Computed example of a mutant assay.
Amino acid sequence: MGPVQYWILLTLTLASYALQLYAFVDALRRPAHAFRSERKLSKPIWLAILLAAAGVGIVGFPGFLSLIVAVAAIVYLADVRPRLEPYSARRGGRGGGQGGGPGRRPSSGGW
């Protein structure tokens, strides 16, 4: 492998690892009830998946395997995180006058 290919793979590997860590920290900050309310895997399961992916990513460093395990972080960030956003304390969460009673998803307005 040439030096240019090595640096490209190293850059992609580091970006993949950063993405995995970002997804893990984001999942840590979300309330557990939000995962249940949105009928997603539980918070501990997502944390385990993301931590395992980050662990494999760092052990396989630098390599193609570290890019493959980024799929877990991508799925979390693309599918789960947007569904959990209304439950964030920064946006008023469930107690900020949005939404309804227990177990109901906060309203984001619209039609």
Rank of each mutant, 00 (worst) to 15 (best):
R83D: 06
I58E: 07
A27T: 05
A32L: 07
A89D: 14
F61K: 02
A34E: 03
A32R: 09
R39M: 06
I68S: 08
G55K: 07
L41H: 08
L77C: 09
W7N: 13
G57F: 00
L28P: 01
G55D: 08
L41I: 01
K43H: 07
D26R: 08
W7M: 11
Q98Y: 12
A54F: 11
I45S: 10
Y6V: 10
L84R: 03
G110K: 02
R83E: 07
I74H: 06
D79H: 03
H33V: 08
P3W: 14
P86R: 07
Y76W: 04
L51G: 10
S37N: 14
Y6R: 13
I68M: 15
V75Y: 15
A18E: 11
W7S: 07
I49K: 03
A73N: 03
P31K: 10
R90I: 09
V69K: 01
R90Y: 12
S108V: 15
P82L: 01
A73E: 09
Y17N: 12
L84G: 03
Q5Y: 09
S108Q: 14
L19K: 09
G100R: 03
L10N: 11
A53N: 05
P102D: 09
L41A: 11
Y76M: 03
R36Y: 04
A48W: 07
P82C: 02
R90T: 11
A89S: 14
L14N: 10
P3G: 12
G92S: 01
G101K: 09
G97W: 10
I8V: 15
L51I: 09
V75H: 11
I8F: 14
G92D: 06
V59D: 02
P62E: 02
G100Q: 13
S66A: 15
R90C: 07
R105T: 12
F35R: 02
G60S: 15
A89F: 15
V71K: 01
P3H: 14
R29I: 05
G63I: 02
R36D: 10
A34H: 02
L47N: 09
S107A: 14
Q5E: 13
P86F: 04
A18W: 13
Y17A: 09
Y76S: 00
L10P: 05
H33S: 12
V75P: 06
R29D: 15
Y22A: 13
S108H: 10
P106S: 06
W46V: 07
L51K: 00
R36V: 06
K40H: 11
L9D: 01
P44I: 05
G103I: 08
P31D: 15
P106T: 07
G63N: 06
T11N: 08
V59L: 11
L84W: 00
L50N: 01
V59K: 07
S107T: 10
T11P: 02
D79G: 01
P3D: 15
A89K: 13
R39E: 06
G93Q: 06
L19H: 10
